[in-house]
Amino acid sequence: MANADNWQGEVLRTLRDDGSTPGQEPPVDSPVGSPVGSPVGTPTDTPVAVPPPHPDQQHAPRPGVRPHPVTPPPPHTPDSRPVLDPSLAAAAHRPRHGEHLASRAVRILRRTVSSSAAREVAETTAIAETLQRPVTTGRQIAVTSIRGGAGKSTVTALLGMAYAHYRQDPVLLVEADPALGSLPSRLGAESVRWTTGDLAGIVEPQMSLLDVTGYLVQLPGNAWLLPGSQGQIGTMLDTKAYERVMVSLRRYFGVTVVDCETLPAEVARVALAAAQARVLTAPATLEGITSTHAVLQWMRGLPRHMITGTVVALTELVPHSGIDLDKAAQRLTETGASVRALPYDRHLAAGGPIRTERLAHATREAAAALAADAFRLSQQRR
């Protein structure tokens, strides 16, 4: 990608707090000719003669007033569309807990009578300290897979939720997979409007954070979403549009998580090369592990930071996968990548919006550890 090295060299702009509400649309200018500030008692039926300005002063700014850059309006304003059809959303059942009631009761009992509670608290504290480390440049973490159905969007949503929970700076989730991606649904977005392709023709370097967030979907906490499509088949995203969006938005957000296309799509390869860390999701099956191992072997032929800055997320899609995860992880780590297992979770398996309070305890721990690994890798020098 052009200017990829500059992505890590620019200091994150200090966000200016002007008292505005994030996500608020910019104010609309008054109509031309409207009587703004006209004196009280001026007869409305008596025209007021206004002398025309001197030709030399028509375009001259007033003394002491800095001209405000005007962003050209977008060529087309899309309509807002619901993420889920109401008639289809009604078919969903009530969200399930990630683990059975009996399992939750046993875990709580063990924490009460076991000494492992102190160790668990220590591990959680260490993960929180890692996720809260300050950054001087925006970190970009790309999530991809070798095939569909590997939990790529789910892992992206879990990472974004973890960063938004622990960090104070803005967090952005970008959907660079416009082919009917499920990231907005997993994040609980009700509607989408502007997409990654739309923003490529709108965003300008002089825009403020308030201007930018006006085109994004606000999520709980300090997080925003940029969808890849409005759920329409045939939406495309080229590498130039992706690069323009990412270069322009990098200064506003401390961490950006990108839900990429599956490999070997061109945008996915560009996103992997430009990101400071990569997460490669793989189903915990024999076929998933085999294909992921082949991708890691290919990455070993690239610059070394590509493989050392990659963590594999082994996702268990069924309760009993029949795979020895320890042996699989050992085989994959031999390539130089890190490996984390994401256990089966009934709440995640059901699809729909992710509710962190309904995730299994083991899932929350694994997701936080995966987020910490990816963030730690993103801070390593290339």
Score class of each variant (00 low, 15 high):
Pro78Cys: 05
Glu25Ser: 08
Glu357Met: 02
Ser182Ala: 02
Thr44Tyr: 01
Pro78Asn: 00
Arg81Leu: 00
Gly19Trp: 06
Ala189Met: 12
Glu316Lys: 04
Ile141Gln: 05
Met299Ser: 11
Arg119Met: 15
Gly188Ile: 02
Gln218Leu: 13
Ala4Phe: 15
Asp177Gly: 01
Leu210Cys: 12
Arg94Asn: 03
Glu129Thr: 15
Gly151Val: 03
Asn6Ala: 10
His100Cys: 08
Thr308Arg: 07
Ala265Tyr: 01
Ser338Asp: 14
Leu226Asp: 04
Pro227Ile: 07
Ala271Arg: 02
Leu314Gln: 01
Val247Arg: 09
Gln168Met: 12
His54Arg: 09
Arg186Met: 04
Met207Ile: 13
Trp194Arg: 13
Ala179Arg: 08
Asp326Phe: 09
Ala350His: 12
Thr112Ser: 10
Val113Asn: 02
Arg346Leu: 11
Arg119Gln: 15
Tyr344Ala: 08
Gly254Ile: 07
Asp326His: 15
Val36Pro: 08
Arg193Asn: 08
Lys240Cys: 15
Gly138Leu: 00
Asp85Ser: 07
Thr213Val: 12
Val339Met: 14
Ala90Gln: 01
Ile146Arg: 02
Trp224Phe: 03
Val203Asp: 07
Tyr166Arg: 13
Val50Thr: 10
Val83Ser: 06
Gln297Trp: 06
Pro22Thr: 00
Thr196Gly: 05
Leu12Ile: 02
Leu348Trp: 05
Ala294Val: 08
Ser114Trp: 12
Ile202Val: 11
Ser114Val: 07
Leu88Met: 11
Arg110Glu: 04
Val11Ile: 02
Ser34Gly: 14
Ala91Asp: 12
Ala200Pro: 14
Leu280Gly: 03
Leu225Gln: 10
Leu332Ser: 04
Leu332Ile: 04
Asp169Glu: 01
Arg346Met: 08
Pro22His: 05
His347Trp: 03
Arg13Leu: 11
Leu226Ile: 13
Leu377Lys: 02
Asp177Tyr: 09
Thr310Leu: 08
Arg186His: 06
Gly288Asn: 10
Thr14Val: 10
Thr290Trp: 11
Glu316Arg: 09
Ala157Tyr: 08
Ala117Ser: 15
Val312Ser: 09
Leu173Phe: 06
Ser115Lys: 03
Pro303His: 14
Asp345His: 10
Thr112Asn: 10
Glu120Lys: 15
Gly228Arg: 04
Gly41Asn: 04
Gly201Pro: 13
Val113Arg: 06
Ala176Leu: 11
Arg139Leu: 10
Val212His: 05
Pro184Asn: 03
Asp324Val: 00
Thr130Leu: 01
Ala367Phe: 05
Arg269Asn: 13
Gly234Lys: 07
Thr154Met: 12
Gln140Ala: 08
Leu210His: 06
Glu365Tyr: 02
Ala49Cys: 07
Ala157Lys: 05
Asn222Trp: 00
Leu237Pro: 09
Glu316Thr: 06
Gly37Ile: 05
Ser34Gln: 10
Trp224His: 13
Arg381Asp: 03
Gly37Glu: 01
Leu280Pro: 03
Glu10Asp: 06
Asp17Ser: 02
Gly254Asp: 00
Glu334Met: 13
Leu180Gln: 00
Pro31Leu: 13
Pro53Trp: 06
Val339Ser: 13
Asp29Ile: 04
Arg382Phe: 07
Thr333Ala: 15
Ser30Asp: 05
His97Asn: 01
Thr137Leu: 09
His165Thr: 12
Ala4Asn: 14
Glu120Leu: 08
Pro170Leu: 12
Val192Lys: 09
Ile108Ala: 13
Gly37Thr: 00
Ala268Met: 12
Pro227Tyr: 04
Arg193Thr: 14
Gly201Asn: 14
Val143Gln: 01
Ser145Asp: 12
Met161Gly: 07
Gly41Ile: 11
